[in-house]
Structure formats: structure tokens, C-alpha cells
């Protein structure tokens, strides 16, 4: 399947949610702040972002100067061949790693220059992660896993626990609150991870091959979950190999060899088509099993 060829990417006015998470005492942004055409500040903007790994024998240039903006409420799929730097880029966006050079703004804040503790603070307050391998803490129950992000904000009250239970319910795990990851299927674990990524009411959700380990039925469930999150106004950035998954996003950014190779918007029609196509596929699968 190929993504529909449509008009070049254009900024659509973002549906802005009121934020409950405060920027806190994060350092203020420096000059060079980015403003979009409509005057709003993008959720993420990067300029000439580079990352190289110095190995013993050579230096690997994983990212060689990537620039783009992601407005609030966007839903971006990052694609590209293996080794093109997708994960590296996503890690940078998630403040898990620092760029070698370039600018990186989260809202008003210049992230590229922050120290480790400030980055942890940003991860804790603004970012939700969904990993390919779920990355749940094995000794914790579903509810406890969902609560972890707030734990590092020092919030552990009954209100937080209730919120974790509500989130678990919203991803369809109401019956499994006290289960441990070992007792859940891959899809269920990934739903726990999604619930966890929502716990801190993040500015955006980062998903690296979130559906990579899942079958098409479960993949559809997860993508539907992302759709509804995005409809609520959440910004989602995901890395994927699969065109069918990328077809559900509003926008597809392609990387090749550490550089941006294309940046396109999926039309609403093509997204709806992809949704229907996948649903029919799932139904067909179900029928074949019967």
C-alpha cells in the first residue's frame, strides 16, 4: 500500500487542549524561537538536528541535519529504511538523548542545551512513551505501571490511583487492574503502555514501532486508540515500517540516510479509506477463522 499523494504539508490550526501539566521550573527558551504561519508556537520544532556516534574505528552520522515543525494536535508517522535514523530522531524528540548539534525546541523551551535532570523533568511532565517492546516494569501490576510517570513527580495520592484506574478502563483493561505484565497478551501490555503514556497528561506521545510486535487485529485496536487520542487533541509522533500503519497518520515524514527525504500530509479521505480497509481486513481474518 502506498500513502496517497496529496498536497504538500500545510499547517492546520491545532485543536489546543487546556494543559493540566505545568511547564514547572524549566529553563526559559533562548532566542531563535519558531513561530508557525498562523502565529502559534509548534509543539516541537527542530532545526539542522545532527547526531553522530563516535565509535572506536569510525564515526556514525545517524542524523545529518533534520529540520521540521510539529504543531499541536498533529499525528506524524516517521518512516524510512532501516538504519535511516528514525529511532535516533525519536529518542532525541523524547529527550532521551542529546543531539550533537542543532536546535530543538519543545514549545518555548530550548531542549538541546539542558542538563540531565532538566531532561528527566521534561520527560516526566510533557512526554508519553510507547515502545515496541512495551517496557513495562515486571514486578508492578497494571495500575502500578500506569502510575509510574507520576511517581517521579512526587504525586502518589488516591486521586492519581483513581486516574490510573480510569485510564486502564479507557484502554479496555478494567478487568485486569491487578494483573502483572507476564499475565497479559502483547496487545494488552501495549494498551497498558499507552495508558501509562497518558498518565502525565503529556504534550505529545512518542511511539517507536508501537505495533511492530502485534498482529493485525491488535494493531487495529491500538491504531483506533491513537485515532481517538489524536481526536482529543493529543500530538502523536510514531515511527513505523508499515505503510498501512502510516496511512492512518495525518502526516508522513520520511528519512533516508539521516536526512529528511519527504514530508507529506495524508488527506482525510485517504485516512478514512485506510481505516475501513484495515477494518475489513480484520473482519475477513475473523471470518476465515470461523
Amino acid at each position: 500500500m502506498s500513502e496517497s499523494q496529496v498536497e504538500p504539508y500545510r499547517v492546520s490550526p491545532a485543536s489546543v487542549l487546556p494543559r493540566t501539566a505545568e511547564p514547572g521550573n524549566l529553563p526559559a527558551g533562548e532566542g531563535g524561537r519558531v513561530t508557525l504561519a498562523d502565529g502559534s508556537v509548534p509543539a516541537v520544532s527542530i532545526r539542522e538536528l545532527k547526531k553522530s556516534y563516535v565509535l572506536k574505528s569510525e564515526t556514525v552520522h545517524a542524523l545529518r541535519g533534520v529540520s521540521f515543525d510539529i504543531p499541536e494536535g498533529d499525528y506524524v508517522a516517521i518512516m524510512g529504511p532501516s538504519g535511516s535514523g528514525k529511532s535516533t530522531l525519536l529518542n532525541m524528540l523524547g529527550c532521551l538523548d542529546k543531539p550533537t548539534s542543532g536546535n530543538f525546541f519543545l514549545g518555548h523551551d530550548d531542549v538541546a542545551s539542558m542538563d540531565d535532570d532538566s531532561l528527566a523533568e521534561i520527560r516526566s511532565r510533557r512526554i508519553g512513551f510507547v515502545f515496541q517492546s512495551y517496557n513495562l516494569i515486571q514486578q508492578y501490576t497494571v495500575v502500578e505501571n500506569i502510575q509510574v510517570p507520576l511517581y517521579y513527580q512526587g504525586k502518589l495520592g488516591p486521586a492519581e490511583k483513581q486516574r490510573a484506574i480510569d485510564l486502564a478502563t479507557s484502554v479496555g483493561l478494567a478487568e485486569r487492574l491487578d494483573h502483572r505484565p507476564m499475565q497479559l497478551s502483547g496487545g494488552q501490555q501495549q494498551r497498558v503502555a499507552i495508558a501509562r503514556s497518558l498518565m502525565n497528561d503529556p504534550y505529545f506521545i512518542l511511539a517507536d514501532e508501537a505495533t511492530g510486535n502485534l498482529d493485525s487485529v491488535t494493531t487495529e485496536e491500538i491504531l483506533n486508540l491513537f485515532d481517538s487520542l489524536n481526536n482529543e487533541g493529543r500530538t502523536i509522533i510514531m515511527v513505523t515500517h508499515e505503510d498501512e500503519v502510516a496511512a492512518r497518520a495525518k502526516r508522513i515524514v520520511r528519512l533516508a540516510d539521516g536526512l529528511l527525504s519527504s514530508d507529506r500530509t495524508n488527506s482525510e479521505e485517504s485516512r478514512a479509506e485506510a481505516r475501513i480497509r484495515q477494518h475489513e481486513h480484520v473482519l475477513a481474518l475473523a471470518q476465515r477463522k470461523l
Binding site: 532521551l96 540531565d116 528527566a120 520527560r123 516526566s124 512513551f129 516494569i137 509510574v148 510517570p149 517521579y152
Partner: peptide, 16 residues
């Protein structure tokens, strides 16, 4: 180590 990575990704500082 993996658990430590998860916790760090979810906002744990080094001192945590």
C-alpha cells in the same frame, strides 16, 4: 538495567 532505563525514560532522575 532495562528497568532502570524504563524508569529514566518515564522521568526518573539519576538520584531517583
Amino acid at each position: 538495567t532495562r528497568e532502570i532505563g524504563i524508569r529514566r525514560a518515564l522521568g526518573a532522575k539519576r538520584k531517583d
